[in-house]
């Protein structure tokens, strides 16, 4: 909060070196805090795509992901003053909000167990670190589908926590330290979750990859 006061100008030489994330975003935030509507639009445009991808990847449900997206930015716009660029990059801050909103969404809305062909998350009440055993039987449900559907389903068969870790690592290429920050877990836990996620995905995609490579 104190960071954005008038006394501590956000991009002076003293503080600029300590800032996390890209300077354009920080400059945009400063303009937002001065009440510039255009800056809000630019900030949104700059970050909307990957936030949507993360939400959709985690929830695997388009409408829910769109609701989370709106919710995330509504909260971020209102709470912009609370963001401290010395602590984390804006992207990391947004990711933290997104993961939290996705978890709330799953908690509030009981996703019915859908058929695998719809690629929905079906792991609501499973032990958190356990991988769905259907992942290990890819031949049962991976026939006559496009490549993306196969991978999408494999992702959907992971437990929520493994999916969160896998997407942040594979898609966002985040470090385990960053993943830990976003998920609120130690980096070592993020590492072990990633090992489990990778093992499960590799097993699920084994046959598909062999077919593709042959």
């Amino acid at each position: 909060m104190a960071f954005w006061t008038k006394e501590r100008i956000w991009l002076n030489e003293k503080t600029a070196a300590d800032l996390k994330g890209d300077p354009i975003t920080i400059a945009l935030i400063a303009r937002c805090l001065q009440g510039e509507t255009l800056a809000f639009e630019q900030l949104y445009e700059r970050h909307v795509s990957y936030i949507y991808r993360l939400a959709f990847g985690l929830l695997q449900h388009r409408e829910d992901a769109e609701e989370v997206l709106q919710d995330v930015f509504e909260y971020a716009f209102r709470s912009l003053k609370r963001y401290d660029p010395h602590k984390s990059a804006f992207k990391t801050w947004l990711y933290t909000i997104t993961v939290s909103r996705c978890r709330n969404k799953r908690r509030r809305k009981w996703l019915p167990i859908l058929s695998l062909s719809q690629g929905q998350d079906t792991n609501q009440d499973r032990p958190l670190e356990v991988v769905d055993d259907r992942v290990l039987l890819p031949e049962q449900h991976m026939t006559r589908q496009s490549d993306q559907e196969v991978v999408w389903q494999a992702l959907g068969c992971l437990s929520d926590k493994l999916r969160e870790t896998a997407i942040l690592r594979y898609y966002e290429e985040m470090t385990y330290q960053e993943i830990g920050e976003i998920l609120g877990i130690p980096a070592k836990t993020a590492e072990s979750r990633m090992r489990l996620a990778h093992k499960a995905l590799r097993a699920a995609l084994q046959e598909f990859m062999e077919d593709e490579n042959s």
């Binding site: 991808r53 990847g57 997407i167 594979y170 995609l205």
Partner: peptide, 14 residues
């Protein structure tokens, strides 16, 4: 390849 496939899929689907 596992990582590449996940990355491509999340990008395209989302």
């Amino acid at each position: 390849q596992v990582g590449r496939l996940v990355k491509q899929t999340v990008h395209a689907q989302g």
